[in-house]
Protein backbone atom coordinates (compact mmCIF):
# COMPACT_ATOMS: atom_id res chain seq x y z
CA UNK A 1 0.00 0.00 0.00
CA UNK A 2 2.77 2.45 -0.90
CA UNK A 3 1.13 5.74 -1.70
CA UNK A 4 4.14 7.88 -2.54
CA UNK A 5 6.17 5.95 -5.10
CA UNK A 6 4.10 4.48 -7.89
CA UNK A 7 5.25 1.52 -9.94
CA UNK A 8 5.55 2.62 -13.61
CA UNK A 9 2.68 0.22 -14.29
CA UNK A 10 0.48 2.31 -12.00
CA UNK A 11 1.39 5.69 -13.47
CA UNK A 12 -1.45 7.29 -15.41
CA UNK A 13 -0.77 8.62 -18.90
CA UNK A 14 -2.41 12.07 -19.09
CA UNK A 15 -2.70 11.89 -22.85
CA UNK A 16 -4.56 8.56 -22.85
CA UNK A 17 -8.36 8.52 -22.78
CA UNK A 18 -9.73 8.27 -19.22
CA UNK A 19 -11.87 5.22 -19.97
CA UNK A 20 -11.36 2.56 -22.59
CA UNK A 21 -13.36 -0.65 -22.67
CA UNK A 22 -12.10 -3.29 -25.07
CA UNK A 23 -14.04 -6.40 -26.13
CA UNK A 24 -15.80 -6.61 -22.77
CA UNK A 25 -17.81 -9.74 -22.00
CA UNK A 26 -19.47 -10.48 -18.69
CA UNK A 27 -21.44 -13.57 -17.70
CA UNK A 28 -23.17 -14.46 -14.45
CA UNK A 29 -23.12 -18.25 -14.60
CA UNK A 30 -24.66 -19.22 -17.94
CA UNK A 31 -26.24 -15.81 -18.36
CA UNK A 32 -24.16 -13.63 -20.70
CA UNK A 33 -25.02 -10.05 -19.77
CA UNK A 34 -22.41 -8.12 -21.78
CA UNK A 35 -21.60 -9.49 -25.20
CA UNK A 36 -18.58 -7.58 -26.44
CA UNK A 37 -18.57 -3.87 -25.58
CA UNK A 38 -16.02 -1.49 -27.10
CA UNK A 39 -16.09 2.04 -25.80
CA UNK A 40 -13.67 4.94 -25.51
CA UNK A 41 -14.49 8.00 -23.44
CA UNK A 42 -12.34 11.07 -24.01
CA UNK A 43 -11.41 13.65 -21.38
CA UNK A 44 -14.28 15.98 -20.54
CA UNK A 45 -16.94 13.92 -22.29
CA UNK A 46 -20.28 13.33 -20.61
CA UNK A 47 -21.45 9.96 -21.89
CA UNK A 48 -25.02 9.00 -21.04
CA UNK A 49 -26.03 5.34 -21.20
CA UNK A 50 -29.66 4.40 -21.76
CA UNK A 51 -31.40 1.10 -22.41
CA UNK A 52 -34.15 -1.21 -21.19
CA UNK A 53 -34.10 -2.76 -17.72
CA UNK A 54 -31.75 -5.74 -17.56
CA UNK A 55 -29.86 -4.73 -20.70
CA UNK A 56 -26.55 -4.57 -18.81
CA UNK A 57 -26.11 -0.81 -18.18
CA UNK A 58 -25.19 -1.17 -14.51
CA UNK A 59 -22.97 -4.14 -15.23
CA UNK A 60 -21.05 -2.12 -17.82
CA UNK A 61 -20.64 0.85 -15.47
CA UNK A 62 -19.58 -1.39 -12.58
CA UNK A 63 -17.05 -3.08 -14.86
CA UNK A 64 -15.27 0.24 -15.38
CA UNK A 65 -13.98 0.27 -11.78
CA UNK A 66 -14.01 -3.53 -11.57
CA UNK A 67 -16.82 -3.88 -9.06
CA UNK A 68 -17.69 -6.52 -11.64
CA UNK A 69 -14.75 -8.46 -13.02
CA UNK A 70 -15.01 -9.04 -16.81
CA UNK A 71 -15.25 -12.59 -18.09
CA UNK A 72 -13.31 -11.51 -21.17
CA UNK A 73 -11.83 -8.23 -22.42
CA UNK A 74 -9.97 -5.29 -20.92
CA UNK A 75 -10.68 -2.09 -19.05
CA UNK A 76 -8.04 0.58 -19.58
CA UNK A 77 -8.08 3.62 -17.28
CA UNK A 78 -5.80 6.53 -18.29
CA UNK A 79 -3.66 4.12 -20.25
CA UNK A 80 -3.41 1.47 -17.51
CA UNK A 81 -4.94 -1.96 -18.12
CA UNK A 82 -6.57 -2.41 -14.71
CA UNK A 83 -7.52 -6.04 -15.36
CA UNK A 84 -3.80 -6.78 -14.97
CA UNK A 85 -3.72 -8.51 -11.56
CA UNK A 86 -0.45 -6.76 -10.67
CA UNK A 87 -1.98 -3.32 -10.91
CA UNK A 88 -2.70 -1.43 -7.67
CA UNK A 89 -6.47 -1.36 -8.12
CA UNK A 90 -7.23 0.52 -4.88
CA UNK A 91 -4.98 3.34 -6.06
CA UNK A 92 -6.74 3.52 -9.40
CA UNK A 93 -10.19 3.46 -7.86
CA UNK A 94 -9.44 6.71 -6.03
CA UNK A 95 -9.32 8.36 -9.46
CA UNK A 96 -12.73 6.97 -10.47
CA UNK A 97 -15.58 8.48 -8.45
CA UNK A 98 -18.73 6.38 -8.25
CA UNK A 99 -22.27 7.41 -7.34
CA UNK A 100 -24.93 4.77 -6.71
CA UNK A 101 -28.68 4.73 -7.09
CA UNK A 102 -29.06 3.95 -3.35
CA UNK A 103 -26.49 6.63 -2.27
CA UNK A 104 -24.67 4.12 -0.03
CA UNK A 105 -23.59 6.70 2.54
CA UNK A 106 -22.11 5.16 5.68
CA UNK A 107 -25.03 5.36 8.13
CA UNK A 108 -22.89 5.06 11.27
CA UNK A 109 -20.92 8.21 10.52
CA UNK A 110 -21.67 11.92 10.31
CA UNK A 111 -21.72 13.61 6.93
CA UNK A 112 -18.27 15.04 7.64
CA UNK A 113 -16.82 11.65 8.58
CA UNK A 114 -18.38 10.08 5.48
CA UNK A 115 -16.28 12.46 3.42
CA UNK A 116 -13.06 12.41 5.45
CA UNK A 117 -12.58 8.73 6.21
CA UNK A 118 -11.35 7.60 2.80
CA UNK A 119 -9.23 10.73 2.39
CA UNK A 120 -7.44 9.87 5.64
CA UNK A 121 -7.25 6.10 5.23
CA UNK A 122 -6.52 5.94 1.50
CA UNK A 123 -4.87 9.22 0.53
CA UNK A 124 -3.18 9.61 3.95
CA UNK A 125 -4.33 13.20 4.28
CA UNK A 126 -4.21 14.71 7.76
CA UNK A 127 -7.47 15.08 9.64
CA UNK A 128 -7.33 18.87 9.31
CA UNK A 129 -6.67 18.73 5.57
CA UNK A 130 -9.39 16.13 5.00
CA UNK A 131 -11.92 18.23 6.89
CA UNK A 132 -10.99 21.32 4.93
CA UNK A 133 -11.52 19.45 1.67
CA UNK A 134 -14.80 17.97 2.97
CA UNK A 135 -16.17 21.39 3.89
CA UNK A 136 -15.19 22.77 0.50
CA UNK A 137 -16.95 19.87 -1.27
CA UNK A 138 -20.06 20.24 0.88
CA UNK A 139 -20.18 23.90 -0.01
CA UNK A 140 -19.91 22.96 -3.65
CA UNK A 141 -23.01 20.75 -3.42
CA UNK A 142 -24.81 23.32 -1.27
CA UNK A 143 -24.87 21.40 2.02
CA UNK A 144 -22.47 23.31 4.27
CA UNK A 145 -25.03 23.32 7.07
CA UNK A 146 -25.23 19.49 7.19
CA UNK A 147 -21.65 18.82 8.29
CA UNK A 148 -22.64 17.20 11.60
CA UNK A 149 -25.88 15.54 10.47
CA UNK A 150 -26.25 11.79 10.12
CA UNK A 151 -27.33 10.42 6.72
CA UNK A 152 -30.69 9.27 8.12
CA UNK A 153 -31.53 12.90 8.91
CA UNK A 154 -31.18 13.97 5.27
CA UNK A 155 -33.57 13.81 2.34
CA UNK A 156 -32.71 11.51 -0.56
CA UNK A 157 -31.57 14.43 -2.66
CA UNK A 158 -29.32 15.68 0.12
CA UNK A 159 -27.90 12.20 0.68
CA UNK A 160 -27.06 11.87 -3.00
CA UNK A 161 -25.34 15.26 -2.99
CA UNK A 162 -23.26 14.18 0.02
CA UNK A 163 -22.37 11.01 -1.89
CA UNK A 164 -21.18 13.15 -4.80
CA UNK A 165 -19.17 15.35 -2.41
CA UNK A 166 -17.63 12.21 -0.89
CA UNK A 167 -16.44 11.07 -4.32
CA UNK A 168 -15.19 14.51 -5.32
CA UNK A 169 -13.11 14.78 -2.15
CA UNK A 170 -10.83 12.09 -3.57
CA UNK A 171 -10.00 14.37 -6.55
CA UNK A 172 -11.14 11.86 -9.15
CA UNK A 173 -10.33 12.30 -12.84
CA UNK A 174 -13.67 10.84 -13.83
CA UNK A 175 -17.07 10.06 -12.31
CA UNK A 176 -19.45 7.15 -12.82
CA UNK A 177 -23.15 7.58 -12.03
CA UNK A 178 -25.59 4.65 -11.88
CA UNK A 179 -29.12 6.05 -12.08
CA UNK A 180 -28.31 8.72 -9.47
CA UNK A 181 -31.85 10.12 -9.39
CA UNK A 182 -33.95 6.96 -9.78
CA UNK A 183 -34.49 6.48 -6.04
CA UNK A 184 -35.53 10.11 -5.49
CA UNK A 185 -38.92 11.72 -5.15
CA UNK A 186 -39.59 13.73 -8.33
CA UNK A 187 -39.22 17.08 -6.60
CA UNK A 188 -35.69 16.18 -5.44
CA UNK A 189 -34.34 15.09 -8.83
CA UNK A 190 -33.52 18.63 -9.94
CA UNK A 191 -31.10 19.49 -7.14
CA UNK A 192 -28.97 16.43 -7.94
CA UNK A 193 -29.02 17.00 -11.70
CA UNK A 194 -27.96 20.63 -11.08
CA UNK A 195 -24.87 19.46 -9.21
CA UNK A 196 -24.07 17.00 -12.01
CA UNK A 197 -24.52 19.68 -14.63
CA UNK A 198 -22.12 22.05 -12.88
CA UNK A 199 -19.60 19.20 -12.66
CA UNK A 200 -19.95 18.64 -16.39
CA UNK A 201 -19.49 22.36 -17.05
CA UNK A 202 -16.24 22.26 -15.08
CA UNK A 203 -14.94 19.63 -17.50
CA UNK A 204 -15.33 16.44 -15.45
CA UNK A 205 -15.29 13.23 -17.50
CA UNK A 206 -18.58 11.50 -16.74
CA UNK A 207 -20.32 8.25 -17.56
CA UNK A 208 -23.98 8.40 -16.54
CA UNK A 209 -26.54 5.60 -16.64
CA UNK A 210 -29.84 7.45 -16.57
CA UNK A 211 -33.49 7.58 -17.47
CA UNK A 212 -33.43 11.39 -17.48
CA UNK A 213 -33.62 12.06 -21.21
CA UNK A 214 -33.71 15.81 -20.55
CA UNK A 215 -30.34 15.60 -18.81
CA UNK A 216 -28.92 13.44 -21.60
CA UNK A 217 -30.08 15.95 -24.19
CA UNK A 218 -28.94 19.10 -22.38
CA UNK A 219 -25.74 17.99 -20.66
CA UNK A 220 -24.61 14.83 -22.47
CA UNK A 221 -21.98 15.05 -25.15
CA UNK A 222 -22.64 11.50 -26.29
CA UNK A 223 -25.49 9.04 -25.91
CA UNK A 224 -25.17 5.27 -25.93
CA UNK A 225 -28.13 2.94 -26.30
CA UNK A 226 -27.54 -0.57 -24.95
CA UNK A 227 -29.83 -3.53 -25.48
CA UNK A 228 -29.20 -7.19 -24.62
CA UNK A 229 -25.56 -6.61 -23.78
CA UNK A 230 -24.43 -4.79 -26.92
CA UNK A 231 -24.17 -1.15 -27.94
CA UNK A 232 -26.96 -0.84 -30.49
CA UNK A 233 -26.57 2.81 -31.34
CA UNK A 234 -24.55 5.81 -30.25
CA UNK A 235 -23.99 9.40 -31.21
CA UNK A 236 -24.85 12.97 -30.41
CA UNK A 237 -27.66 12.90 -27.81
CA UNK A 238 -29.93 15.33 -29.65
CA UNK A 239 -29.62 13.38 -32.89
CA UNK A 240 -30.14 9.96 -31.33
CA UNK A 241 -33.10 11.14 -29.28
CA UNK A 242 -34.86 12.97 -32.09
CA UNK A 243 -33.90 10.72 -34.97
CA UNK A 244 -32.98 7.18 -33.81
CA UNK A 245 -31.68 4.98 -36.64
CA UNK A 246 -31.99 1.49 -35.25
CA UNK A 247 -35.48 -0.07 -34.87
CA UNK A 248 -34.68 -1.21 -31.29
CA UNK A 249 -33.70 2.33 -30.33
CA UNK A 250 -36.86 3.62 -31.93
CA UNK A 251 -39.07 1.19 -30.06
CA UNK A 252 -37.32 1.90 -26.72
CA UNK A 253 -37.54 5.66 -27.11
CA UNK A 254 -41.18 5.52 -28.17
CA UNK A 255 -41.91 3.85 -24.82
CA UNK A 256 -39.95 6.24 -22.57
CA UNK A 257 -40.35 9.64 -24.25
Amino acid sequence: MSSGNLHPRDTPDPSAPPIQVVGLHKSFGDHEVLKGIDLTIERGQVVCVIGPSGSGKSTLLRSVNLLEWPTKGKVVIEGIDITDPDVNLDKIRTRIGMVFQQFNLFPHMTVLRNITISQEKVLQRSKAEAEEVARAMLERVGLSDKVDAHPSQLSGGQQQRVAIARSLAMNPDMMLFDEPTSALDPELVGEVLDVMQSLANEGMTMMVVTHEMGFAREVGTRLIFIDEGVIVEEGDPREVLSDPQHPRTQSFLSKVL
Binding site: L67, D90, K91, R93, F106, R166, M170
Partner: peptide, 25 residues
Amino acid sequence: KGQREAARSLGMSPVQTTLFIILPQ
Protein backbone atom coordinates in the same frame (compact mmCIF):
# COMPACT_ATOMS: atom_id res chain seq x y z
CA LYS B 1 -23.83 -5.00 -0.15
CA GLY B 2 -23.70 -1.37 -1.33
CA GLN B 3 -21.71 -0.39 1.76
CA ARG B 4 -18.78 -2.57 0.75
CA GLU B 5 -19.05 -1.39 -2.86
CA ALA B 6 -19.05 2.27 -1.85
CA ALA B 7 -15.98 1.79 0.35
CA ARG B 8 -14.09 -0.19 -2.29
CA SER B 9 -14.87 2.33 -5.01
CA LEU B 10 -13.36 5.04 -2.78
CA GLY B 11 -10.14 3.03 -2.85
CA MET B 12 -10.35 1.38 0.56
CA SER B 13 -8.65 -2.01 0.80
CA PRO B 14 -10.66 -5.11 1.80
CA VAL B 15 -9.20 -4.91 5.34
CA GLN B 16 -10.00 -1.20 5.72
CA THR B 17 -13.50 -1.77 4.39
CA THR B 18 -14.10 -4.55 6.90
CA LEU B 19 -12.65 -2.62 9.85
CA PHE B 20 -14.13 0.83 9.29
CA ILE B 21 -17.35 0.18 7.36
CA ILE B 22 -18.67 -3.37 7.76
CA LEU B 23 -17.78 -4.39 11.33
CA PRO B 24 -19.01 -1.20 13.05
CA GLN B 25 -22.40 -1.63 11.38
